[in-house]
Amino acid sequence: WQDSGQMSVFLVRDSRPEAIEALRTSLNEDARVDQVEHVPPSAALEEFKSYSGLGRVLEGLDENPLPDVLLVRPATNDPEALTELRDHLSGQAIVAEARLDMAWVKRLQEMMVLGQRVVLALAALLALGVLL
C-alpha cells in the first residue's frame, strides 16, 4: 500500500553523479514528493540477478545495461497530481523516462472509496441499532 504510487525515474545512461544528486536534492525539496531513493546500476543489476533467476546469463554481459534509477514516492495518491509530477519529471534534462502505473493508482482510489462507503454503512447500521 505504501508504494502504491511509486514512480520509477530512469535516467539517461552515463549521467554525471553531480547532475543525479542535484535532481535528487531538488526532488527531496519538492512538496509533492515524500521520499526519493537512488538505485545505482550495479545495485539494480544485483537485484535483477537475484529475482530473475538469470544470474549466469547476466554474468556473461560485458557491461551493465541498466541505467541509474530514482524511485520517487509521491506525497499523495491523487491521479491528477501524480500525472502532473510524472510530466514534470519527464521534462528534466537527465531523465530518459518517468514511469507510473496509473491503472494501479486508480484501482487503489476506487478501493479507498469503497472502503469509505462500507464504513459509513456500518456506522449507519450501528447508529440504527443504538436507536432501536
Rank of each mutant, 00 (worst) to 15 (best):
Q6M: 13
M7W: 00
S8G: 00
F10P: 01
L11A: 00
V12Q: 10
V12T: 15
D14I: 03
R16D: 06
R16I: 01
E18N: 11
E18V: 13
R24D: 01
S26G: 00
S26N: 07
L27D: 08
L27G: 04
N28H: 07
N28D: 14
E29A: 04
A31N: 14
R32Y: 01
R32G: 06
R32W: 02
D34F: 12
D34N: 09
Q35V: 05
H38R: 10
S42D: 15
S42G: 08
S42F: 12
S42W: 07
A43R: 12
A44C: 03
E47N: 09
E47M: 11
E47F: 10
F48V: 07
K49L: 08
K49I: 03
S50W: 12
Y51E: 15
Y51V: 15
Y51W: 10
G53S: 10
L54H: 04
L54I: 10
G55L: 03
L58S: 09
L58F: 11
E59F: 03
G60N: 14
E63P: 00
L66C: 09
P67S: 14
V69M: 08
V69S: 06
R73Q: 15
A75H: 09
T76P: 00
D78H: 14
E80I: 09
A81T: 06
L82K: 09
L82Y: 13
L82D: 00
E84R: 15
L85A: 09
L85P: 04
D87P: 10
L89G: 10
S90Q: 12
S90P: 08
Q92T: 02
A93D: 15
I94S: 04
V95K: 02
A96Y: 14
A96V: 01
E97W: 15
A98C: 12
R99I: 02
D101T: 05
W104N: 07
V105L: 02
R107F: 06
R107C: 01
L108E: 10
Q109H: 06
Q109V: 04
Q109N: 07
E110H: 07
M111K: 15
G115M: 03
Q116W: 06
V119Q: 14
V119T: 14
V119E: 10
A121D: 04
L122Q: 07
L122D: 02
A124G: 02
L125T: 09
L125M: 13
L126V: 14
A127G: 06
V130A: 09
